[in-house]
């Protein structure tokens, strides 16, 4: 479909653009808070978002895709409007606990290098624990699921061990392992290992017998059967487990960072709320949301690519 197929109306006349205008207009209302606001940062942020939206509007080829982007922008503007009105303009909340958006965005911009370090530290831990879990759980799940006899017993063991919330290993891990980082990797490993193992095993058990037969009559070897046939056929299930593991990993890591770390996104939030710096606390919460969303966006893209045959 060529870009020209969408009408001007579909492209540019949207709620999101209206909300953007309203957001700009409310900046002219008088401020009711004592602290100096920095509305420029909030406006700057909104302008960047609007520029991105207009680019998307001009380049979009599919209506559904454009609608989604525009709706997300609309939500964002609505949130900014409500936030600005509740804080800077009508002072409905406690100033100290809930700063206006401009101040939060200014803080965000100032803290980019520091935040980058914390994000990097968190993601490195996630990557280590998660990839280790993937490397261990995937082949094990394939073999256990494929050999029905061991698989049945293993399914019960996995259910029992998987039912234990990995957070209970944290104190033991701290006693056992030398550093916070190694404990985190262990906890993330355990958090992702069980969901991936369980999903792989059930995925393998659910593979249609006819697909296995089709492969058997082609005379495939054992390894080909496991890794090219069973693994591919079970992949939709396996990816569900991978996604669960990733979710739990992030929950646990941020919690763990709040308890005992000297770095990481969870540490940033906890540290600054302990110090009473709520602007930075909000910055931290936003950053955690953005980073995890970005990771899952990438994960979903990868999943879509791997399952493009469906």
């Amino acid at each position: 479909m060529s870009p020209a197929k969408l009408s001007f109306r579909t492209r540019y006349v949207r709620t999101a653009n209206l909300l953007f205008a309203i957001f700009l207009l409310i900046q002219f209302l008088p401020n009711r808070i004592s602290k100096a606001d920095a509305p420029g940062y909030a406006v700057g942020f909104a302008v960047i978002a609007e520029a991105a939206l207009l680019c998307a509007s001009a380049l979009a080829t599919k209506k559904t895709g454009l609608c989604l982007i525009a709706d997300i922008a609309a939500f964002l503007y609505a949130l900014l409007i409500a936030w600005t009105l509740a804080t800077a303009k009508f002072n409905l909340t406690k100033e100290m606990l809930f700063p206006p958006p401009g101040i939060v965005f200014r803080q965000l911009a100032e803290d980019v290098p520091q935040l980058g370090r914390h994000i990097g530290s968190s993601l490195a831990l996630i990557a280590q624990g998660y990839l280790l879990a993937l490397a261990a759980a995937l082949p094990l799940g394939l073999v256990l699921g494929y050999s029905a006899r061991i698989g049945n017993a293993a399914a019960y063991v996995a259910k029992f061990l998987g039912a234990i919330p990995p957070v209970v290993y944290i104190p033991y891990g701290i006693a056992l392992l030398p550093s916070f980082r190694s404990v985190s990797v262990l906890v993330i490993f355990l958090a992702s290992f069980w969901p991936i193992l369980a999903a792989t095993m059930s995925g393998v058990l659910l593979v249609e017998r006819r697909i296995v037969d089709s492969a058997r009559v082609l005379n495939v070897g054992r390894l080909t059967m496991l890794f090219r046939i069973i693994l591919s056929a079970a992949l939709p299930q396996i990816l569900i487990g991978c996604s669960q593991g990733l979710t739990v990993s992030f929950i646990l890591l941020t919690s763990a960072e709040m308890i005992g770390a000297r770095s990481g996104m969870g540490f940033y939030v906890k540290n600054y709320s302990d110090l009473g710096n709520y602007t930075r606390t909000i910055v931290g919460v936003l950053v955690v949301g953005i980073v995890i969303s970005a990771v899952f966006f990438a994960f979903n893209k990868l999943q879509k690519f791997l399952l493009r045959w469906r």
Binding site: R210, V217, N219
Partner: peptide
């Protein structure tokens, strides 16, 4: 057992959906 001397066509699911 299955062997390379025989080719098989089933009613369905002969093909691997991911290829």
């Amino acid at each position: 057992g299955p062997g390379p001397d025989r080719g098989v066509v089933f009613q369905s699911y002969s093909l691997f959906p991911w290829m």
